[in-house]
Every structure is written in structure tokens, then in C-alpha cells.
Design a binder for these strands. Structure first.
Lengths: 333, 333
DNA sequence: GTGAAAGCGCTAACAA
DNA sequence: TTGTTAGCGCTTTCAC
């Protein structure tokens, strides 16, 4: 540990050139002669020189990292397969660049404060913000941020310049239409959090479809996207509308909880009650019965967020992106 | 964007003190008079000063971040619920500190190279390394690393100073003993990757138990910890030893795949074949039938890794940690 | 094509 | 308790 760092000066000396020449050679700037470039090359190898990123960052005013901030009070949020997939997408893009990914769970007060500071002091070159709540303090931060911000999902209450979202409304509609098309008439929904864009959009899709079909859209219980919440919501639904024959659940995680409750209540799926989820997480294929759900390209969401941020960083002005969703019919409906 | 940064000098000037005084006040060093401290305080507020972390890092030679590196060729690794939980544990600890978490998926050549560089140039204050393979290039890096390294799971081939692991061998043994105790006699196993510590340890536990019971331990197929691998391995197992009546599967993910194959093969679980998994991921409760499995405290694993790293960073020499595992009996056995 | 010199913003040793 | 003075290691004008 704590070996002394080999500095650029040492390389320069060894190569018998000036420090600036060495610097140019290393960052392969154009104005360096062949011989010097090669001399520097050799010196670098010989000395095992590796540039100090911090110093470089200080000099260039570029940090070399971007942060992914996830809002929400529960640190376990990240364990949600949805976010995990998003992270995979993001890091697959970032791996091709020299940027690194800083994970910022802005759950505690402290976490929020830290994030705020980072955003204001350009301690990151860019920020990706996910799953903002309505009136989320992070939104304010984003506005005064010193660095580009890309949103994952459209936040409620304002339209950011850069975001990538899935077509949640359309997906919710497709899911519900499917229930209608398969003959269900007493259709309920377990919504996601209605203070998040994805939650409201999916719910709107639900309303859209039932309005067109002329069906009653009042069977609704609000959930929270998580499994236990889904179970609880299903219980409530069953208690209030025991005659329901179809339910659109705004996330697969909740749908898994709902399936459990339905089973415990002795309702057969899909015979008594058809269930359609949302997200198409990998677990959806293995529920019993396998879950009909709305597929959204989660990894792609992450990838596109990262790409968009890169584009902004490169001085471009990419336009917002809406990724398509599509219904995947399995046995639960 | 790109507001000019307020510097310490400006604060000092505004407060009417020297820069060093300002610096001391801000880092609340002892030797500053009350009045100056407060003057600086006010100036900071008035100017909206926020220290520049990069400059500080350069001066103090402390970066303020730690990296979690996950080895493996598949970027989707992170979507594994196991890793996701570990990350949750880590970040819950880090959130209490001023360190941030850099996620480094060392999957591509490039990723590895970058990580190597970071490790060698002290671009992070510490490193957590997970799921190293035998002869993993990362291990070499870890040795020449300039910064403290904490391992998640014991790597094969050497004993690092700092690691936290789960008691995999004991867990594998408990799982297998349970199969024995419930009367199974033709017991097979789907191992994890045998070039990873966790994989071999669980397999050893399997062997231990069967040796004690005097049963045949030759029914083994190697898996890879992932669901599809588990399905495939189960197929192979069934083909080679159609008479098996119990199987210890070294990860829940693989067990989920195995359950599917058993169902498709018309074997009833647990009547024809008892299945025991490992990890106790949340999905294990919802398989059909619910999965008997070996619980390990995954979030705690992450937490302890982070704590251990903090301890090392604080100059302590924490001893390695082995977290307990325990059998959770559900309906699949 | 090359080198000298002036920073980037902060900390820390030293002298006062 | 205070201020002065060097750095930390790199980039980048600006003359040559």
C-alpha cells in the first residue's frame, strides 16, 4: 500500500522531454513529434506511470463520473429487480466510456443532502434521476444543478428537457383492453404509487380502456409497486368488490403478491380472476400461473438514459425518448 | 449550468480572515477563534460556498469514494437478486459516511483495465471485491493494490486479510442433512460454479453430509448459479439418475429453474423429489411449492463488508467474518 | 513542435 | 490563534 505515485514529471525526465510534451504525448495531442511520443511511451511503461485522475479532474474541471440517484425512503429500493435491471443497462453503456457510475441512494436526509451538494458543486459530470415523487426535493435540486440531468421516467409536475420513459399509459391501456377483450367485465386495478409518473400513467391507461369499453372503472386500490403492498391491495380489492373477475396490477412485484392472496382466497387464476401485471420482470414467467404482463425494455431504459446523458455531455441536445411497451400474454389471463 | 464556483478565497475575503483560517473553520479544526469561525460561517452562507471535493481530494490524497467491483463476464450479474441485496447493505452503511459508492462491473476487458488502473492509482480509498473466480485477474490486482481491499466471499487459492463470507459449507451440509433426515437416499446436487469459493464450499457441505450418512455422493452436475443453468442441470441430472429422490441446489435461482424442469418432467415436489435451495432470496417463498432453502444474511453481508472496509480505512485491523447460515424449511422438501 | 509558467481549489507545515 | 507559503499532479495558454 501507499506506493509513491509516479508523476508526469518523472516520466518527462526519464524520456528527456518537457512535462508539457509528456502530457501531450500521453493525451495524444497532435503537436508532438514521433520520437518524443515514443520516448514518452517507453518511459511510461518503464516507470509504470498511471495518470492521477484527481489531479486531472482538478485541472480540467471534469470529474469523470456520473451519478445515478434513486429517490425514496427505502434503501432496499435498489433490490427491486426493476432498478437492478436499469443499473445493468446504464453500466453496460458506461463501461464503454471513461466515466464511472456513482450510486446514490438518496433515501436518508443525509443522502439527500449529500446529493444536493454533489449536484451543486459539479462533483459529477452528470446525473441520472429515477423515480421522482411528486414534489420530490430532488426535483428542485435538479433545477439548480450545475450539471446535466437526465430523468428516468417523466416526473410529475414538470417536463424536463431530458428524459427517457416507457410508454406506461399505452401499456396500462393494452393490459386493460386485454382483460376486456377476454370477456372480463368487472375489472379492478391495483395502481402503483400515484405520486409517481409511472403510477399515474398506468392508471390513466386503465381508465382509458374502460372508458372506451364503457365499463365501470371505480374498482381501484392504490398500491406501492412492492410485493407486500400488492398482496395487501388485493385483499382490500377482494373485500370491497368480491365479484371482480379481472385485475390489472401496475407492477409484476405487486402481481406476485396479488396472486398469492388470490390463491389463499381460493380464487382460481385465470378462471375466476384474470390477472395482468406490468414490467415483465424475469420472475413473471415463473409465477403460477405464469403472469400475463406488459413488457417494457428495462435494460434499454437504463442504456438510453446513459446514452442520453453522454449526448448531453457531448454538447448535443437529444430529444426525450419514450420506449414502447407491449403486452405479453401468458396463462394468468 | 456552469455557474462559477465560489472559492475558499472568496469566503476568506468576505469573512475578513486568511484562507487558512477559513479552511480551518470549515473543517472545524480546533484552533480557530469563535468570532472568526462565525464570520466564516456567515460568509459561507452568504456566498453559497461549497468546497470543491476534487481539490480537496488532491490536497489530502483521499478520494472520498470506495468501489464495489463485481467480477464476471455477464453485465447482467448485477440484476441477480443476491448482488442487488449486497449493494443495498453496502450503501446503507455508506450513507452514514461521507464516502460514496462507485459501481464497477469489471466484465469487459475494458472494465477490468479501468478497475486495475483505479486500484493502482488510488483513485478510490478502498475496494470491495465480490465473487472472484479462481485465477481471477482481479485477484492479482488486489494484491498490488494501493488501497485496502475487502473481499465478499473467500476467494479460491488464497486467504485475504479482510473478507466477509457466509458459512457456505455449513449451509450446504445442513441442506443435505435435511434431505437425509427426511428419508431421501438417492440425493443429487446441482453445484454452483466450482471456480468460486461459494460454489465449492456448498459442494463440500454436500459431500460432508453424505459421507456421514454413508450415502452415495456421485450424483452431481455443475451449474452456474443462474436460473437457466439450473434448469439445464436438472435436465441432465434427471437423464443420468432418473431414480433420484432429493436434490440440493446451490442457489435459489437455479432451484427455480430446477423446479420448472421437474414439473415439466412430471415429477412432483416434494413427493417424488425433494428440493433444497440456497440463499433464501425473496422469490423462494413464492415458488410452487415454496422452496426449502438455506438462508444467508445477504444484506448483512454487504453491510459487514462496508463496515470492515471503513474499519480498515480507520487504521484498524478487523478480523475476517463468517456469517451464519440456517436452513429454512418450506414445502419443497 | 516545444518549453516555461501559471493556474485548478484546497490543505498543511511552518513561522509568527 | 493566526497568516504565509508551499505544495497535491495535471493541463493549458502563451511565447518561442
Amino acid at each position: 500500500m501507499a506506493k509513491r505515485q509516479v508523476t508526469l514529471d518523472e516520466v518527462a525526465e526519464r524520456a528527456g522531454v518537457s512535462r508539457s510534451a509528456a502530457s501531450r504525448a500521453i493525451n495524444n495531442a497532435p503537436n508532438v513529434s514521433r520520437v518524443k511520443r515514443e520516448a514518452v511511451q517507453r518511459a511510461v511503461e518503464a516507470l509504470g506511470y498511471v495518470p492521477n485522475a484527481t489531479a486531472r479532474a482538478l485541472a480540467t474541471q471534469q470529474v469523470g463520473s456520473v451519478v445515478l440517484a434513486i429517490s425514496g425512503e427505502d434503501p432496499a429500493l435498489l433490490a427491486d429487480p426493476f432498478f437492478a435491471e436499469v443499473v445493468v443497462g446504464i453500466s453496460s453503456v458506461l463501461e464503454e466510456t471513461d466515466l464511472e457510475l456513482v450510486l446514490s441512494l438518496a433515501t436518508s436526509e443525509r443522502g439527500q443532502a449529500r446529493l444536493a451538494q454533489r449536484l451543486r458543486t459539479r462533483q459529477a459530470d452528470g446525473v441520472m434521476l429515477m423515480s421522482l415523487r411528486e414534489n420530490d426535493p430532488l426535483a428542485a435540486l435538479a433545477h439548480q444543478a450545475d450539471v446535466p440531468v437526465v430523468f428516468g421516467g417523466r416526473p410529475l409536475g414538470f417536463e424536463p428537457s431530458y428524459y427517457v420513459d416507457a410508454d406506461n399509459r399505452c401499456g396500462g391501456r393494452a393490459a386493460t383492453e386485454h382483460l376486456v377483450a377476454t370477456g372480463r367485465t368487472r375489472i379492478a386495478t391495483i395502481t402503483g404509487r400515484l405520486d409517481e409518473g409511472a403510477g399515474t400513467a398506468r392508471y390513466q391507461g386503465f381508465q382509458d380502456a374502460l372508458a372506451v369499453a364503457g365499463l365501470d372503472a371505480s374498482r381501484i386500490v392504490q398500491g406501492d409497486f412492492a410485493e407486500d403492498g400488492g398482496a395487501q391491495a388485493m385483499g382490500e380489492l377482494l373485500a370491497r368488490w368480491p365479484d371482480l373477475d379481472g385485475v390489472f396490477v401496475a407492477s409484476d412485484q405487486m402481481a406476485i403478491g396479488a396472486l398469492r392472496v388470490l390463491r389463499e382466497a381460493g380464487r382460481s387464476v385465470p378462471d375466476d380472476v384474470a390477472v395482468v401485471g406490468f414490467n415483465d420482470i424475469s420472475a413473471a414467467r415463473h409465477t403460477v400461473p405464469p403472469l400475463t404482463t406488459v413488457h417494457q425494455p428495462i435494460q434499454a431504459l437504463g442504456r438510453e438514459m446513459a446514452r442520453m446523458l453522454l449526448a448531453v455531455l457531448a454538447g448535443e441536445q437529444p430529444s426525450p425518448l419514450i420506449l414502447p411497451t407491449r403486452l405479453v400474454v401468458r396463462a394468468s389471463s
